[in-house]
Amino acid sequence: MLLTTNDVKKIAYLARLGIEDHDLEAFTHDLSNMLNLMTQMNSINTDEVEPMAHPLPQSQRLRADNVTETNQREHFQHLAPHVEDGVYLVPKVIE
């Protein structure tokens, strides 16, 4: 296998995905298979190739610096699991 369960634990933390210990083996197995598939790419030489980020070679359009949005706080905060006095609440942020 290309990955160890420890690798997967690290990646999962980076992605902030909680993974139960009993699922770890299965994820490690599946991800290793996926990586196997991806290493097929190495069969092609791409040394002189320019990477392609977008299908069309266009440039970014720019918008005029105008304020177009109005306050919709209540509307948006209806969706939030925990708000108080207009702010979103989360467990204590430690800096």
């Binding site: 690798d7 990646i11 991800l31 190495n42 092609i44 791409t46 190739v49 320019e50 990477p51």
Partner: peptide, 24 residues
């Protein structure tokens, strides 16, 4: 998880950049 791995330090060139070149 796969995507996080492909972008992470040390693997970006081998996976993400390589894939972008193949895309080209």
């Amino acid at each position: 998880l796969m995507g996080t791995y492909a972008l992470s330090a040390g693997y970006y060139d081998a996976y993400y950049l390589k894939a972008q070149k193949i895309r080209r």
